[in-house]
Nucleic acid binder design. Structure first.
Lengths: 134, 134
DNA sequence: CAATTATTTTACAATCATTCTAAACTACTT
DNA sequence: AAGTAGTTTAGAATGATTGTAAAATAATTG
């Protein structure tokens, strides 16, 4: 993504286009599905010669999630993952190498779910399909 | 569960029936589905006037899981949950009060799952149905 | 453009769940 | 009863994450 497009994207979401947010957005939003943790992303920016504090990475990932640019995924290993695929979807998780692969929600059919308890409604469904070597 | 039954249970699983393991097993295995974290269980034993170190709770929960007396559940809030229901099953998770409800695996039908990547097999499937107030 | 204000970044300390460590303790065997 | 192997424990350490307060930077206003 060009810097100008990134700046426009951030402004669209009412986020001040600071140097660090522009760098992170440019890295994340290239149109492909990316899965990062604060640590992996920190490593990637460091590899590009940019220095960003880890706190800023956390702040930014949460801000991007809040405005809907990212989706947060819990329950995969110990860290929180962030996914540039913001559609409702599920995941394969390869436990041998901590690798995530998206599964479109449309590729999974869940039926016969029991009734929700009185007064409760379904807020969302998360499916994690764990993979290992055969 | 009586103390003697608990002792027998532990021996059956080749776990030395120490005072602390007997106390925890008696508390956990009363035949009902229990969901605990190290912290909630620690609170429960404390309420019964028994003093156990948190490290022992962690050790014991992991040992019980290893022999198949408990099932570990990740991805629910920040802590690791342990479930006395060891059958393959899924969960409702009420986000308003951090409450878990089991869903038997037989009560959910998952179909049309995409093929696993080359050389990988499905190790397990975890479904979490998040509930909120309507 | 300069000054002011508002937001952001950052280093560092703090927190929380969990694990490690090494010493004290206890169940089991002889 | 003594030995030894397995357990428990307090307390330190770890790793992911959040809080804090000061320094830096972006936006706004005159």
């Amino acid at each position: 993504m060009t810097t100008q497009n990134t700046v426009d994207l951030l402004r669209l979401y009412k986020l001040r286009p600071t140097r660090q947010r522009v760098a992170l957005a440019a890295l994340l939003f290239d149109g492909t599905a990316r899965h990062v943790t604060a640590e992996t992303l920190h490593g990637q920016v460091k590899d590009m010669g940019i220095t960003l504090s880890l706190a800023t990475i956390y702040n930014t990932l949460h801000q991007f999630t809040k405005v809907g640019l990212l989706k947060e995924i819990r329950g995969i290993g110990d860290a929180t993952w962030f996914d540039t695929n913001i559609d409702q979807h599920h995941h394969f998780f390869d436990i041998t190498n901590d690798h995530l692969i998206d599964i479109p929600a449309s590729s999974i059919t869940i039926s016969n779910l029991p009734d929700s308890p009185q007064g409760k409604v379904i807020d969302g469904i998360d499916v994690i399909v764990r993979l290992s070597d055969e």
